[in-house]
Amino acid sequence: MIASVAGTVTALGPLSTVVEVGGVGLLVQCTPATLAGLRVGEPARLATTLVVRETELTLYGFTDADARDVFESLQSAAGVGPKLAQAVLGVLEPDVVRRAVAEEDLAVLTRVPGIGRKGAQRIVLDLRDRLGPPRGGALPGPRPGEPAGA
């Protein structure tokens, strides 16, 4: 597995970048938010994961290890491959994904192109115990005087 790459950005595209590492240009698929932080000719460090398929090797890059970990967890849900997992992180921050799964908020998950209600339900069911709580803090409980299900 290639856990990270660090080098000079030599090219930027709408869905990918090329990072030159030790004289070798690595094509890395990234979300638009990750790409927005990169500049041609400047150094970059990306957390990465290598997805191996029968006919291709694809390197996916992220601004940090947390996003990479959520990407990898998303792929363990039924019907979610690397492209859909990347689309999720292109629309939602890792903590928003965790919160949506923990709160079973299907409306948030269905904002991602390619995820309908049934797909969101599968993601919640498959990942409920794998993603953990949002890193920004525990899920808020009910406000004082408010019933628990409101």
Score class of each variant (00 low, 15 high):
G7V: 12
T8E: 12
V9Y: 01
T10M: 14
L12T: 02
S16L: 07
V18W: 02
V19Q: 03
V21W: 00
V21N: 01
G22C: 09
V24F: 11
V24R: 03
L27N: 13
V28N: 02
Q29N: 08
T31G: 12
T31C: 10
P32Q: 11
L35E: 06
A36S: 15
L38F: 07
R39S: 10
G41P: 00
G41W: 08
A47L: 13
A47P: 11
A47C: 13
T48M: 06
T48L: 08
T49L: 05
V52R: 13
R53D: 04
L57Q: 08
L57I: 09
L59Y: 06
D64W: 03
A65Q: 14
D69K: 02
F71A: 04
F71I: 00
E72A: 15
S73L: 14
G79E: 14
G81N: 10
P82C: 11
K83D: 08
K83N: 09
K83P: 01
A85W: 00
L89Y: 00
L92I: 05
L92A: 04
D95Q: 13
V96L: 13
V97R: 00
R99M: 12
A100Q: 04
V101Q: 01
E103P: 03
D105Y: 01
L106E: 07
A107L: 14
V108Y: 06
G114F: 09
I115L: 15
I115C: 02
G116I: 06
G116V: 07
G119H: 10
Q121I: 05
Q121C: 07
R122I: 11
L125Q: 13
L127S: 00
D129G: 10
R130N: 05
P133L: 15
L139K: 11
P144H: 02
G145R: 01
G145Q: 05
E146D: 10
E146V: 14
G149R: 12
